[in-house]
Design a protein around this nucleic acid. Structure first.
Lengths: 135, 135
DNA sequence: CTGCATCCCGCCTGATACTG
DNA sequence: CAGTATCAGGCGGGATGCAG
């Protein structure tokens, strides 16, 4: 995602290293999963319980996506019934560190963002004043 | 986006500070726009030229979204024809700093991600070897 | 328990045309 | 120049059912 001398941005997403990372961050679930796995290896069903609103379909899809990018590894224990454990790889843990930075930044700037929103949205009745002060 | 004692994650997105930030990062265009504006104030048409593939509709929408969250400010010069200039706010510049960190991380880990992908996708004929070494 | 296949609906997004 | 309005298509993502 560089910017050329002619002022036009490099928008070749197919080979854009930044997209690979940003897509995970923008995804509704992958960040949550990484956060959960940062606390230790988890089984499929444990993850599903930990993230209540996710469907099996999306959980599987998100896990595959993270596995594909080398963020986590999948271990199958051929017991019966079988159990599958997911754990962060080294790359995944480094990604998690970045994610934590982002979370911290977001929380630190949350009030300012919300205040800007209320200002922009046309100043909801009186709640606007409350939050304007909070900044 | 915290994790409760019962192991279930806090998934109240409507009031989640992290979502407000991650949504911008995940968006296909907003990061690009922030990157462009980091080089200095830009007019609407300049941004459209800089990001070739974006439509007027999406550019407007992305700019509104960033403005709403206080990342950038909009200045209208009532000349004729009118011109509108967008520039990052303080919050926007701080956001840009975080974005830069992410870009740096992405570029630093790009090779590893791509190698993991080739491994996972079933080892494309021989290109796999090339990139495996690159790590 | 884990995960894939299918159906299906809603929203996002691009294309196009029009206005101040 | 800087948008807004409208329409139509694609696709993400939920629900359900089935398999290893």
């Amino acid at each position: 995602m560089s910017i050329g001398p002619d002022g036009t941005a490099d928008v070749d997403f197919s080979r854009c290293p930044v997209r690979d990372v940003l897509d995970h961050l923008g995804d509704k679930w992958t960040s949550l999963i990484v956060l959960m796995l940062a606390e230790g290896p988890q089984r499929f069903s444990a993850l599903q319980r930990a993230v209540p609103d996710i469907s099996k379909r999306m959980l599987t899809q998100s896990l595959r996506s993270l596995e594909r990018d080398g963020m986590l590894s999948r271990h199958v224990y051929p017991t019966k019934p079988p159990s599958v454990e997911y754990r962060l790889t080294d790359l995944g843990r480094r990604f998690h560190a970045e994610l934590q930075r982002l979370v911290a930044w977001a929380e630190a700037n949350h009030a300012e963002i919300r205040a800007a929103r209320l200002r922009h949205d046309g100043l909801g009745p009186d709640a606007a004043l409350d939050l304007a002060e909070a900044v």
